[in-house]
């Protein structure tokens, strides 16, 4: 049994490594701007940093490499894998489409024909099956290590909120790239940082629930890949519609983008709390 002190120490080392990795793109900013190869190498290392931090922490603390949650557990959990595929796609669609419909611009959705939607779903499913493995670089760290250490310390809600915040702040270098390169203003950058801080706990709750249900990080990997890929799929479908070049929606509709993820966050936190209650407490 690990003590609270041990848990804090392990989590501290893990977060320190992750924070260092987050500083890396700032440190090598000049190199990344000057050379595409430099950019590629730093970006790849940055993306794999949470998984590397997991492995390094386990080695440093002599914790061992058990409970990495790398088993697929596919047969008995196929419904969770399907949910990992479908829910991020549905959420991404709900983030953008209702605002267009409410503002009476349904003609913008003319790209959403049955043929196009089925094609997008099939291509996403195919991509998800063979090309999502790269996301293990993140999920092995966040869901495969950080959550396991956070939960005994701060409970379910704390894990979702703190874990989600750490996870979104880790993306700060990629959010800041536009500002540092002079392509964005500080307020635009802060808007995307803030938006991420609102959205990520929702995903964090869903991925935590998936990982606990299946005892595997792979459904979270799939869901993460789908979350990323579905954004470009929805953008592509929107791009096929009749959207005028100078089209814009009222600024209040930005709020609608966050609604699905807030609902998802609350729904899965309630599920997680209910399931925790069912587990008999040991003295």
């Amino acid at each position: 049994m690990t003590t609270k002190k041990e848990n804090i120490k392990r989590l501290g080392i893990y977060l320190l490594i992750v924070a260092a990795s987050s500083a890396m793109p700032f440190v090598y900013f000049k190199l990344m701007n000057a050379s595409q190869t430099g950019f590629f190498i730093v970006a790849e290392l940055f993306c794999a940093a949470p998984a590397l931090a997991n492995l390094i922490t386990r080695k440093l603390t002599k914790e061992g490499f058990r409970n990495m949650k790398l088993h697929l557990h596919l047969t008995e959990n196929i419904r969770y894998y399907l949910l990992a595929f479908a829910l991020p796609l549905l959420c991404t669609a709900l983030m953008y489409i209702p605002a267009i419909i409410i503002c009476d611009h349904s003609e913008w959705l003319s790209g959403f024909t049955l043929n196009n939607v089925v094609t997008a779903v099939l291509m996403l499913a195919a991509q998800g099956a063979v090309m999502s493995a790269g996301l293990i670089g993140e999920e092995l760290g966040w869901r495969g290590y950080m959550n396991q250490k956070l939960e005994p310390l701060v409970g379910i809600i704390g894990t979702v909120l703190i874990g989600g915040a750490v996870w979104s702040l880790w993306h700060l270098p990629s959010d800041m790239q536009g500002y540092l390169a002079g392509r964005e203003t500080l307020s635009e950058t802060m808007k995307s940082v803030g938006g991420r801080l609102l959205i990520m706990p929702g995903y964090a709750a869903f991925y935590l629930w998936l990982t606990k249900k299946t005892d595997s990080v792979w459904p979270a990997v799939l869901a993460h890949a789908m979350g990323n890929a579905s954004q470009s799929a929805i953008a592509e479908l929107l791009g096929m519609g009749n959207i005028p070049e100078a089209a814009s929606l009222p600024s209040w509709t930005d709020v609608l983008e966050y609604v699905p993820m807030i609902i998802i966050a609350m729904f899965f936190v309630v599920l997680l709390l209910r399931e925790k209650k069912k587990i008999p407490q040991t003295a």
Binding site: S35, Q36, T37, F39, F40, I41, V130, M131, A133, G134
Partner: peptide
């Protein structure tokens, strides 16, 4: 193995494209 191969192939191709751009 198939997934590992395609991941490796695409990673090295992206590295090659980056080096070629330089």
């Amino acid at each position: 193995m198939i997934v590992l191969f395609i991941t490796s192939l695409q990673t090295f191709d992206r590295l090659f494209c980056a080096a070629a751009a330089d």
